[in-house]
Design a protein around this nucleic acid. Structure first.
Ligand SMILES: [Mn+2]
Ligand SMILES: [Mn+2]
Ligand SMILES: [Mn+2]
Ligand SMILES: [Mn+2]
Lengths: 218, 218
DNA sequence: AATAATTTTTAGACTTATCTAAATTTGTTT
DNA sequence: AAACAAATTTAGATAAGTCTAAAAATTATT
């Protein structure tokens, strides 16, 4: 049996490790879980004993294949529920994350398979993140960050890195959503802010916005 | 903050107390929760301290108004999720209970209000049990148990008392579902079994079936 | 290479929910 | 009213997950 807490740690490690490819520090895990390093150490040991992770003292931790499977499955559930909330229950993209944090732990294969079918097998969640299929395969989008976009090229907004309410509401209030067309007009070297052309308006966004918005050439 | 375990105990007490009207014994609670009397005592004390229940040592417990509100809200969530699973995700009425036991603890007013609207404000769950509205009001059906039905009168099946998989699958395999028309042909005094007329067939059901099936005159 | 700073682990304590075994209270018989 | 039986509570332990404070290992700096 896997506990809810174990699932949350595994998911955090998966994200911190760049989808299970890199080693992760104890402090980074503690920070991500809003807990103390000593608690993270305890959990890392437990995950290691249960073969969800490989761990050598003082050397950080990596997810095993088993651990990665668990992580991907929780991410699948999280993102499917997010789609459900937005598509069927009138949630906005800044409201879904918290509820999905809980729904992702409901254990029922039939539930998630039927939900997937009910939503007509969506490939991306409301933040543009890919939804792994039943076998754990992601559909990868070839996206770049606004900060690296070229001047004068037409792009479409396809995702966000930061999914905080504050950032998503900032985008809302500036008329930026998934699918919005964006062209870079000017990149300001002084503060790395970017002037962009939207449908009817031109706006300037800060570097932190430019680093959290994903675009795709059209 | 209320814990998941507290919610489950409160719900159990609500059901055992005949919807919050009667006093409940420690042993009955322990039995319902599949735990030991000593554990039940501990939780009863805690619920009492938190004003979900009134409790005097050795005298059993009653839910307070606050406790009843919590219970009714969980029951509302449980039954709405059951409707969702059957209506939208192709679950059968014998598959929903276990998953709903978990979904009922997700805390989001928006989620449950939107789910209610999405399902078009259902009044009864897949087992015929009434779904309380947002204010906790039940829509009462005037139902009787098959064992007390009169011979020759036309009834409609409107609910079940036992929601176990075994019982529900028994009903399935005998062509009995919510909405099925039933007329009593004969009541056998020897073992209290009942011969009933369905659409095309006549079948004999045992006393335990007759006591768990609810009917309404049409 | 020695020392200092940082990171990580250990030790011991706390909380929630559970258990077993023993003690207490209540209810039922004689 | 005393004795017995049943129900309930208390006492003391355990497991999961957390914390603080101290110890140990690693990494960075001189
Ligand atoms: Mn999310
Ligand atoms: Mn998302
Ligand atoms: Mn149920
Ligand atoms: Mn039900």
């Amino acid at each position: 049996m896997i506990t809810l807490t174990e699932e949350n740690y595994i998911k955090a490690i998966y994200h911190l490790s760049n989808n299970g490819t890199e080693n992760v520090n104890t402090n980074a895990i503690a920070e991500a879980m809003s807990t103390k390093a000593s608690s993270a150490t305890d959990m890392i040991k437990k995950l290691s004993e249960k073969n969800y992770a490989d761990y050598k003292k003082y050397q950080g931790v990596t997810l095993t294949e088993k651990g990665k499977r668990v992580a991907v499955n929780i991410i699948r559930k999280h993102r499917l529920w997010e789609v459900f909330l937005v598509e069927k229950l009138n949630f906005t993209w800044d409201e879904v994350h918290e509820v999905a944090e809980h729904l992702e732990h409901i254990k029922s294969d039939k539930l998630i398979d039927e939900l997937d079918a009910f939503l007509e097998h969506p490939t991306h969640d409301p933040h543009g993140d890919p939804i792994p299929d039943k076998n754990g395969n992601f559909q990868h989008i070839d996206k770049i960050v606004l900060a690296k976009a070229n001047i004068g090229v037409a792009y479409k907004c396809v995702g966000v890195d930061d999914t905080s309410t504050a950032f998503l509401q900032y985008l809302d209030s500036n008329g930026i959503a998934l699918g919005t067309m964006i062209t870079v007009i000017h990149k300001e070297p002084y503060d790395n802010s970017v002037k962009i052309q939207l449908k009817d308006t031109e706006i300037v966004v800060s570097q932190s916005v430019a680093k959290n918005l994903y675009l795709k050439k059209v």
